[in-house]
């Protein structure tokens, strides 16, 4: 009896294990051949300067668009849908390059919509994410039925945010594990540009100093993006992105970031340990520099979404 039970359990376990592995391997075949832009990006004649591991690590260093959205909400400005990308355009993005970039754009838009609790329009943006994610074979990380159910109930908006962020994190980890960091690179770039574009739209109206400070701090991020985009610049689409990103870098040339040292602090409050950093950074940026950055980001964003 025990022996039979053991055998049955072992057989079932093996079947489950193999069914899980089979699922992954079939995905691998589809993913590798479908992504047209990668044909030149990963071909053997054009070796990558940076390994997939390093690129993955670098990608993790790009700020979440949620932070920018939260800063915008804190500025007190009203929500504006007209500054976001239009879900009707999704069907026009018919290359993997455009789909990946705009998946990033719509993820930033989704972060902005969720931060402002706009449940009425969130479904159309979720559907855009679904279509774009499926277009580059990463739709499996988004449980759209569950997301849609959550979106229909305003009390579930925190959960919706959690599931959305978690889905993007899983998708990014998967892409890197499949040596598809070039796709992650585009998604992250799209999200970064859209986050800045939304912030810039608010700055144009309000000249909010906190947002201007955050825009100035992005100077260091441009170098990171240039490193990872440049890694694939033997592909003409990536080369075009690098050229355009160089123009944004030029607009940032005069922005200064300085550091002063203060006192580190250790506070224990209600059983929680809080550490306050001793280094303090300051951004020096002129109104003209802000205007130049806004113009360059707007031009780059047009290239991505139009």
């Amino acid at each position: 009896m025990l022996r039979k039970l053991f055998n049955c359990t072992a057989i079932l376990s093996v079947i489950l294990l193999f069914s899980a592995c089979a699922g992954n391997s079939s995905k691998d075949k589809t993913d590798g051949s479908d992504f047209s832009l990668s044909d030149s990006a990963i071909n053997e004649n054009a070796p990558l300067q940076l390994s997939e591991d390093i690129i993955g690590e670098v990608i993790q260093n790009i700020s979440s668009p949620v932070e920018m959205a939260s800063l915008i909400k804190k500025s007190g400005v009203d929500f504006s849908q007209k500054i976001l990308n239009n879900p009707d355009k999704v069907g026009d993005y018919n290359t993997s390059f455009k789909r990946a970039l705009n998946l990033g754009v719509f993820s930033a838009d989704l972060g902005y919509i969720n931060t402002f609790d706009k449940s009425t329009i969130v479904v159309s943006y979720l559907l855009s994410v679904k279509e774009l994610a499926e277009g580059i074979k990463v739709g499996q990380f988004f449980d759209f039925a569950a997301l849609k159910r959550m979106a229909s109930n305003s009390s579930n908006l925190d959960s919706l945010m959690e599931v959305s962020v978690s889905s993007f994190n899983k998708m990014d980890a998967y892409l890197r594990s499949q040596n598809r960091s070039h796709v992650s690179t585009l998604i992250v770039t799209g999200a970064w540009v859209e986050g800045l574009y939304i912030a810039n739209s608010v700055i144009k109206e309000t000249r909010n100093p906190e947002l201007i400070n955050r825009i100035g701090e992005q100077k260091d991020i441009i170098d990171i993006l240039l490193i990872i985009l440049g890694n694939y610049s033997h592909d003409k689409n990536f080369a075009e992105m690098v050229t355009r990103m160089e123009q944004v870098k030029q607009a940032y040339a005069g922005v200064k970031i300085t550091t002063e040292f203060g006192e580190p602090k250790r506070i224990e409050r209600d059983g929680t340990l809080i550490i306050v950093q001793d280094e303090i950074s300051h951004v020096e940026i002129t109104p003209e520099q802000v205007d130049n950055i806004i113009a360059e980001i707007s031009s780059l964003r047009d290239f991505i979404v139009l």
């Binding site: 929680t272 340990l273 550490i275 306050v276 950074s281």
Partner: peptide, 22 residues
């Protein structure tokens, strides 16, 4: 900069007030 194991005590979490983007 910070650890959840501090001065011989284990915390479930810690908080960090960042004053320099990097």
């Amino acid at each position: 900069m910070a650890s959840n194991y501090d001065s011989g005590k284990m915390y479930q979490s810690f908080e960090f007030v960042c004053r320099k983007s990097k």
